[in-house]
Design a protein around this nucleic acid. Structure first.
Lengths: 364, 364
DNA sequence: CTGAAAGCGCTTACAG
DNA sequence: CTGAAAGCGCTTACAG
């Protein structure tokens, strides 16, 4: 009992920055140490760790003090084994944009800060024949606490079904609500696309084109839909000849733009489904001697790093990726903390970031 | 004993793609099930799981057969608890390039494929006052099996010391050997930079400039050193006025280029320490009306996605990031498998990827 | 070459 | 409000 205070002084700062030097012989303390020091059973210590309401306030205080003093942190592995569920969150992704993946990780990590959770990453390929098998292994092997699914794998119903069968909670990030409110972070891509449409219309453009992502992507559909609606608000229509499908890649954007430029009259503004394709549009315009924004206005989507690496700087629709990651992880935690709470839909609205790539049409 | 065969037929395919429908009541089998079925003790099953040589071949075969049949996979959590070490690899990073991070993750995951390991990611900020404390928590909390350190945090000796104290194996990725051979993947950035120098010299350039990364980065130093050496091979010298320090950022690259362009005579070629800065050079050149490669040759480093998003396409020095990740993880595993083996230095050589951004000097 | 006992650090029923 | 027993699924000494 006398060995438990080292400094003897008042409460040491936070969790004791650097206890003993490299004396790694000082093993981490366990629930047993705490129990002994507090003169209670380990079960009671377990109760305070797990925030059980059935602990006398006085007991709780005493135990928490000792926990603080020793810098005790329950072993997630042992806890996991007993709980039959780990303290690990998985992030499953197939988004090709590296910045998206890294920002999302950051956001999830933000939500886990100061918890004992860890973030396990898992890329995937929906086209692979072992896709579902791999995902099942990933989830079952680690007895994941929960999983966050980013687009476009978040749209895969087979995966969602599998997770449900495996009793693994998941939060899906997508442009519209695909499942229960408790499991969704919806990004309303259509709203951002509509804003882009209004902006272009406002500038006076009449011949406005769109290059969408592949039809298999929900986001591609939503962005087109929102754009079309935004145009309609201003009495404009997205003409079929001005409506091309790309692949969300640089090359497909350039190819679609070339087709568009061959039209007469050619469009004076293009809304690309993502920044990659917008970069392709820049390239095609450059090759044809079309100046941006004088001869052609361009708007992208994603506000990825490339948007500020092009000249003129690309105006683009931005989604708060990192924040989305944080929200998704928080949903997972809420569901656990307060008995299935956090059930409201989580929503996010994209915003148009204005830069230098748009101007009134030259003839205006 | 009779319940153990479901299909009754010959060995089913791999690990039984989809055992029972959504019957998740069928709990995962444990080491006890295997032991019972094989008529041995669980300890013996444990021995075959851990590849112990002290098992009769016949016994091993029988046990492995049953393991295969049931698709048994030992629970990493339970194993970890008993081993006092998890089956988790941590990746600690502070590299600002998203593509680098994602590729590295992929590589590490490649090495873990078909193992029961998982990859935990952990960004960090070396300037944060809680940096070391956070890292210690990360490592101790998860009882990490090992950790891979990417540049530039891989250069932090305090971290390496901390990991050693915590008895956590690590592999460091850096441009030169910073520690024991067993813990290093060295990327020889200088070799790639030298190649860039030779290429430029070969083209006939005489006035060749370099924009380096910040002096606090080892890579910045190594790239300059290699470049300078490459020039020297051809009897050229990196003049102090042509040797500028940037920050590895777009803006710093543009600023340094502007200074270089103001010199008379101005350089006819620039080797940028990374692609970001090369993009800045493009921007500055564009603003000054300098055409690439006619008026100015440019070479970058990293071969990041932006390299192919610029016009003309940027020639750049490439490092096989994904492969480096794989190698790093494999080193961690080797050290474990064969009693401290895998001790040789792991090396990687960068290669110059030729594209469209270089040409002989216009006056040549 | 193989096994019975004890233990990793926590939690679940069950009692009280 | 609190605790003693048993257990999560595996491994470590120790025996034989």
């Amino acid at each position: 009992m006398t060995t438990r205070k080292k400094t003897g002084g008042p409460k040491t700062p936070p969790p004791a920055a650097e206890p003993a030097k490299s004396e790694r012989s000082r093993k981490r303390s366990t629930i047993n140490d705490i129990a002994r020091l507090a003169n209670v059973s380990k079960k009671t210590v377990s109760r305070v760790i797990n925030d059980s309401p059935f602990v006398k306030e006085e007991t709780r205080l005493k135990i928490n003090a000792i926990i603080g003093e020793l810098g005790f942190e329950p072993d997630p592995q042992a806890r996991g084994l007993a709980f039959r569920r780990s303290f690990l969150i998985g992030m499953i992704y197939d988004n090709p944009t590296a910045q998206y993946v890294v920002s999302m990780q950051q956001g999830i990590l933000d939500a886990m800060h100061n918890s004992s959770f860890g973030l396990l990453v898992q890329p995937c390929d929906r086209a692979s024949p072992t896709f579902l098998h791999d995902m099942r292994q990933f989830v079952e092997r680690h007895k994941l606490f929960g999983v966050v699914l980013t687009p476009s794998v978040s749209e895969d119903d087979r995966l969602v079904q599998l997770l449900q069968d495996a009793d693994c909670p998941c939060v899906r990030i997508a442009s519209i609500a695909l499942g229960s409110a408790a499991s969704m972070v919806v990004t309303h891509d259509s709203v951002g696309a509509a804003e882009a449409a209004r902006h272009l219309a406002q500038l006076g453009h009449q011949r406005i084109a769109h290059i969408s992502g592949p039809a298999t992507f929900l986001s591609a559909h939503e962005r087109r839909r929102g754009f079309s609606n935004g145009l309609a608000e201003r009495g404009l229509k997205l003409k079929p000849t001005y409506d091309r499908e790309g692949l969300y890649t640089f090359d497909s954007g350039a190819a679609a733009a070339r087709e568009l430029f061959a039209l007469k009259p050619r469009p004076t503004a293009i809304f690309a489904g993502n920044d990659e394709m917008a970069a392709g549009v820049y390239k095609a315009a450059h090759d044809m001697g079309l100046r941006i924004p004088t001869d052609l206005s361009v708007v992208g989507f994603d506000d990825s790093p490339v948007a500020t690496r092009m000249w003129p700087l690309l105006s683009s629709v931005r989604l708060p990726i990192r924040e989305m990651g944080r929200m998704a992880a928080e949903k997972l935690f809420h569901r656990y903390g307060e008995k299935r709470s956090g059930g409201e839909l989580t929503e996010v609205i994209p915003a148009l970031i204005m830069r230098e790539s748009t101007a009134p049409p030259s003839g205006a």
